[in-house]
Design a binder for these strands. Structure first.
Lengths: 346, 346
DNA sequence: CTGAAAGCGCTTACAG
DNA sequence: CTGAAAGCGCTTACAG
């Protein structure tokens, strides 16, 4: 079965036209019952499989969604989004062409170029590196969706309510009696993407507003924004933990921008022989590493899969339907998962 | 730029034949210098981009590799492999169509069907669920590579030397003075894939042979093979840890089949107030979660990216070259990473 | 050095 | 209910 069977082959063997074979393959239009049966047999026997490449050329639609992903590694957040995109796409008959951009503008550019050459029906940026690339995607005329950290380019959007997530986390700590709550986050969104900091600002503002709401004084020394979202910088951030712990009085709780950084901080605490939550409460963000840490980490869950599904859903709606506003925005909620890393303030 | 520009458009605008335009696009064959310059200008101005779908149909090659992956989540091992495949594929001008099979034979079957309809140049199974699907891929005449846990179907193979990895881990513990070393692994490879247990057997044999080599008696109570590689069963396995700890004398070291299970066990130890490595040494397998745990976990690293790269390399060699044996096998080594979870036996 | 033309495998408007 | 035929956008053997 090296040279594959074609529609035309089937037609010849069955002694009908390709038009008729096509009808039974797509199961639409009328075909005489016994003609149909006979054609079905030939298809069965020859192991015929439609050639989607040919169909794509003819229909000018590839049923493929391109997904430019920040990176599958190390943060499984993006893997979750990728999986969500895939599930929803598959359900609607689409496949997904995945490109790991690894935070590299050049790779993103090249990935996009390839996707466009392959005539994907839509491209999803799960955290674009470079607004210029998003703009280029839009100019090509394809459907585009930006996820999580959008550039200022106007496209379809899937966002997360980071502000509410931060509020919920900080309120949880306040409920437990904490007053000295440190915020360890980020103010830049990766080297390649310095401008688009809405996510980080929202989280910081959630923290600040909640403290104000409860009349808790804001102490700048408890706010560490020195970290990037890369692993290396996460390590730099954990170095700062030592400084935080020397403060008098030190914080009794930490609200940390992502689970990976929380994990690094927990390593420092472990080394020092401090117990969680007895000596320090910690809340993370993402729910990636959280369930696996010791102790299991209380964290603000991001609905990774749902984010991916929403992105694919929006993309496919734009591709297939006319009766829809040209640019949609979906905003999804986070969810505080309380586990064992948070306890009453001592 | 909604209706995209074609080669023919370029030819008409430039007043030459498509043949000539094709020559400058592919940068092969002779074209008069000024004709070339002029054509390049038209391409630039119109924003022309080759249509790979059309090319694929014509050349009968799609420059696409299909990757059927056990699952991006939760174990980042597979994400690492996926990334490796992608990097190597991209380097050679291929894209990859990824399908998360999620250990579901039906999904695997459907993913394969789609890949074949899309006429991918090769399909990679990173841990196939069902031998029947591998067989079907082979029958279609495409190139196939099986990675890590192959079914018995004869295909190209990328394997890991699990035996040597286990030996190295156990020797490390013996060097540290441990004699009561427990092995916590798996004897089944997931519900959907009960037969293909070479990986698990190799690790177990590495453990057993090493103990024998050092004249350490084998104690069946120290061997727990009750776990599957799913998260749920990982939890079941950690339950068994309590039993292990009640033994007299209890083990002083644990060799655990994968980092995720080690993480679960570390949670149990943390809860009990036991210190690692003072009260218990632990070695994991994979190097996925290992760097993020408290304390950082000594583990047998699997070269995830390299595994993926090897798979793509083998696939592409088979596609592009004639002077190559039809079925290749690549075997890759593990690497023991010593971190802070292992220390001298007390 | 360059052109006219066939064909990859589909889908589909148009006839009959 | 079914057929003959055009065309999607490329690539490439064959002429010239």
């Amino acid at each position: 079965v090296n040279k594959s069977v074609t529609l035309k082959d089937i037609a010849e063997i069955a002694g009908v036209s390709t038009r008729t074979v096509a009808r039974v393959v797509h199961n639409n239009g009328y075909v005489a019952a016994d003609t149909r049966k006979q054609i079905e047999q030939v298809i069965e026997k020859t192991g015929y499989r439609v050639n989607i490449v040919a169909r794509g050329l003819r229909k000018q639609q590839t049923f493929t969604i391109g997904h430019l992903l920040r990176g599958l590694i190390p943060n499984p957040f993006f893997a979750g989004v990728a999986l969500g995109v895939e599930q929803q796409a598959n359900k609607a008959g689409y496949s997904v062409l995945l490109f790991n951009v690894q935070q590299d503008t050049q790779r993103e550019r090249q990935g996009l170029e390839t996707l466009l050459e392959r005539r994907v029906d839509a491209v999803i940026f799960t955290t674009a590196c470079d607004a210029e690339n998003v703009r280029m995607a839009m100019q090509s005329g394809t459907t585009v969706v930006q996820v999580e950290r959008p550039t200022p380019v106007k496209t379809n959007l899937v966002l997360i309510d980071n502000y509410a997530g931060a509020v919920e986390a900080v309120e949880h700590l306040i409920d437990l009696g904490h007053r000295r709550i440190a915020f360890i986050g980020s103010k830049v969104n990766g080297v390649a993407n310095p401008g688009y900091t809405a996510v980080d600002n929202d989280r910081l503002n959630g923290y600040l507003d909640t403290l104000r709401e409860y009349d808790i004084p804001i102490d700048d020394r408890l706010i560490d924004l020195s970290s990037d979202y890369s692993v290396e910088d996460s390590e730099a951030a954990t170095a700062n933990i030592h400084r935080l712990l020397e403060l008098s009085p030190p914080p009794t709780a930490l609200f940390v921008g992502w689970d990976y950084m929380a994990a690094g901080i927990m390593q420092v605490l472990y080394e020092r022989g401090l117990r969680i939550p007895d000596d320090m409460s910690i809340v993370g963000f993402d729910n990636t590493l959280a369930p696996y840490l010791s102790p299991p980490l209380t964290t603000v869950e991001q609905p990774m899969m749902e984010i991916g599904r929403a992105a694919a859903r929006v993309a496919i709606e734009q591709i297939e339907r006319e009766d829809i506003p040209p640019l949609q925005t979906v905003k999804l909620s986070t969810n505080l998962l309380i586990r064992e890393s948070t306890g009453p303030a001592q």
